[in-house]
Design a protein around this nucleic acid. Structure first.
Lengths: 207, 207
DNA sequence: CGTTGCTTTGACCGGTTGGTAAAATAATCT
DNA sequence: AGATTATTTTACCAACCGGTCAAAGCAACG
């Protein structure tokens, strides 16, 4: 039994391992050189496979990149989704900032992959940006506008507030090289956490 | 007469025009696809030349990219250099923010070229980052620290303050596609100017 | 053990890449 | 004009690109 047209087909042990290795290698390479600047040979070498072997697991370069991007978008929207309308406004917003900064610290490659895609005009996620992303942002912006109207936070432009959170947190992943060059030995994220806490507390405090 | 070993050699009319066209085309292409993702054919076509003709003016792909980057670095540091220790602290810092945002509006391609280079690990400007850039930033950070010590601005981490100015202003150039996707018809820079003015005024105001 | 299906490899293909050489063409100067 | 120089084109190259294919190697399971 267990009929029906499309059986999911379980992955073998080797498939699971190699697909993971390829995606990890693809993330490493794509996040550094962008889609067009990356080669299958680079990815295959980084994954410890030969190029034809890599193409046994993924049908094309595009396919690897696509899988990385779709997986990324969910991770991307998650921290914002966690911001709840019925919580304490300042706590919720600062929580969002902290989660986003923590993501920059733990997943800098994912952040750079995203940045690369946007820099190149977002040809592969344009739809998601003006669809899924826009809808979520608009909804959360409405929540923020509500908080401001109730006087619980200062009267700020909700969309630009969100942009500033993205910008400030992702900057520490995307421009890591530059920041470390300027800071020397000092740990960027140490100072960033404290600085951003104060910054957003000041922006959000009403009057 | 007019001896001495290395005469600069004046450029012909055609040289001036074509070199400019190539650099403009190179900026367009490199800022979108990064160094490795860009091709000489793309650049040549964008400049309205054939590939061999392009290589008559520049010895290599590297050379075009290098010339763009070195030219860029000066433009890049300029707005920060203009920030003077003997001016009014808040005015000087807000002026820096406005100049930087204006650059993002007027020269988004330059901003993206820079972002691309940093994202890729800054292989070609590493030296400038930990040299020229670091020195200027350190000097200006000292000025900011001085202002804070005198109580003229709030006590903020000078380096992270500068990072946040870079981050927030460049974000509007580098992530333009994403921002426009979310904002719809609304002009990003309109709202950004007002938002950033308020934001930095709040951060900088002491107590 | 054998055989069946999964995995890996090496040899290859057409197209593109950065770059070159030399000849043809157009400006410039006297 | 003619000589000289600057510019452009045509044809080309070796290396690399994404991707295919068939054969070889391997694991699992009865």
């Amino acid at each position: 039994m267990t009929a029906s047209p499309a059986e999911p087909k379980p992955l073998t042990r080797i498939q699971t391992k190699n697909r993971a290795a390829i995606l990890d290698a693809g993330l490493e390479v794509f996040s550094t050189y962008g889609f067009r600047g990356s080669t299958l040979d680079q990815i295959a070498t980084a994954a410890g496979l030969s190029k034809p072997n890599l193409l046994y697991y993924f049908p094309s370069k595009e396919a690897i990149h696509a899988e990385l991007l779709t997986g990324l978008l969910a991770t991307w929207l998650d921290p914002l989704k966690l911001m709840q309308a019925d919580g304490d406004p300042v706590t919720e917003l600062l929580g969002y900032v902290r989660r986003k900064l923590e993501m920059s610290r733990q997943f800098p490659r994912e952040s750079r992959l995203f940045a690369n895609e946007i820099l190149q005009g977002a040809p592969r996620i344009e739809a998601a940006l003006s669809g899924e992303l826009k809808e979520l942002v608009d909804a959360k912006a409405e929540v923020i506008r509500g908080w401001a109207a109730e006087g619980k936070i200062a009267d700020v432009h909700p969309h630009h507030l969100i942009f500033s959170i993205w910008s400030l947190t992702q900057h520490y992943a995307d421009f890591d090289v530059q920041i470390r060059a300027v800071l020397g030995k000092e740990d960027p994220f140490e100072g960033a956490g404290a600085y951003l806490d104060v910054l957003f507390a000041k922006i959000l405090t009403p009057e």
